[in-house]
Nucleic acid binder design. Structure first.
Length: 347
DNA sequence: AACGAGCGCAACCGCTGTTTG
DNA sequence: GCAAACAGCGGTTGCGCTCGT
């Protein structure tokens, strides 16, 4: 099966002399449905690991690295797909301030998200904002903007969304986008079901069967297409709070939210509901009237610095733009909000 | 309708650390 | 102890899609 537009599908890769002659024409570029099925079925039967030998044994003309990447970033049953939620954005920003470009480490705290996806999010969204601000993504200005503008606003919006959801529906407001099937890889968007231990394509308009790991392991996929399932147990896990304490740690005290940590003060994998309501003592910093009420003088000075920065070039594109506010905190609303806060602080 | 620019994301590359024989 | 193979990571690239003109 051919992939549209994949001009480099049949590129040859030079290998060392020790490589098997059969592997001399390794495929590159986008994976085909058949290759995906072969890899999934092989792993379902034999498990993952030893990727080079796996690639050979499965008959895939791919490098072991390519197989591993395809499996981990795309075919794994518990890979979450869809938009990065507000909560996930917030967590990414926070963890990046702590660990920098340690994408795999950051990914450990976002269930189902891959390091590649987080890295792409950072490069496409976050760095875009830095570019609009005409400052380096590692500059103090931009970090302050994240800490004192973007992240508090994310917290507010998360809380507002949760409050709105609570008043309009009895359903729990997790804020998690379960749009796991919105990806534009069409061959992955078809529905599937498990019949007689095999995954089969249904191609119906009904919602796809959600398959968990137990469905997957040992199953075979036999049709020409399938859907990458979302691991419902992972995606909906919320019990990780049951036995953990919620304790703001160091840097997190600057913000109006907290993350779950274990007894060693390490952040634990929080699942979907990792955002905890503010305690009563924190509540003053959670309301919409003065979300910066607990900011230190130094932190407020950071806002002042930002205001100065904004005054330098008041008509820069980031001030003018509109559009989806889900990842765009440089909109007029936020600028007015910021100015109001500054005025309040100066009174 | 056609075209070009920009964006998002899957895949690849190169490097480093770890494991294995 | 050493070399080769393997595994994993972060950075980069290139293609398809979307949107504005």
């Amino acid at each position: 099966m051919e992939v549209k537009g994949s001009s480099n599908n049949n590129k040859r890769v030079l290998l060392s002399s020790s490589e098997d002659e059969d592997m001399m024409d390794l495929r590159r570029g986008p994976w085909t449905v058949d290759e995906d099925l072969t890899l999934i079925n092989y792993i379902a039967t034999h498990g993952e690991g030893r990727w080079n030998s796996l690639a050979r044994s499965a008959g895939l003309k791919r490098t072991g690295k390519s197989c591993r990447l395809r499996w981990l970033n795309y075919l794994r049953p518990d890979v979450r797909r869809g938009n990065i939620t507000l909560e996930e954005q917030l967590l990414i920003l926070e963890l990046h301030t702590r660990w920098g470009n340690r994408w795999s480490k950051i990914a450990q705290y976002l269930p189902g998200r891959t390091d590649n996806e987080i890295k792409n999010y950072w490069r496409t969204r976050v760095q875009k904002h830095a570019k609009q601000l005409k400052c380096d993504v590692n500059s103090k200005q931009f970090k302050d903007a994240m800490r004192y503008l973007w992240m508090p606003r994310l917290v507010e919006r998360i809380q507002a969304a949760a409050a709105a959801a609570a008043t309009t529906t009895t359903a729990p407001a997790t804020g998690i986008n379960n749009n796991a099937y919105s990806h534009n890889n069409n061959h992955l968007n078809n529905n599937f079901e498990v019949h007689n231990g095999k995954m089969v394509l249904t191609n119906t308009t009904t919602p796809p069967t959600v398959m968990n790991n137990n469905d997957f392991v040992g199953s075979q996929i036999t049709t020409q297409s399938y859907n990458t399932p979302e691991n419902s147990s992972t995606a909906a896990s919320s019990d990780s709070f049951g036995t953990t304490q919620v304790s703001p740690i160091s840097d997190f005290n600057d913000y109006n939210y907290s993350v779950p940590v274990n007894s060693n003060n390490n952040i634990i994998n929080p699942g979907d509901n990792f955002y905890q309501p503010c305690s009563s003592s924190q509540q003053v910093s959670c309301n919409n009237e003065n979300p910066y009420g607990l900011l230190s003088h130094q932190q407020q000075q950071g806002i002042m610095d930002l205001q100065t920065m904004m005054m330098v070039e008041p008509n820069t594109p980031w001030m003018m733009q509109s559009g989806d506010s889900s990842d765009n905190f440089w909109n007029v609303e936020n600028m007015l909000f910021l100015e109001q806060q500054l005025m309040n602080d100066n009174m």
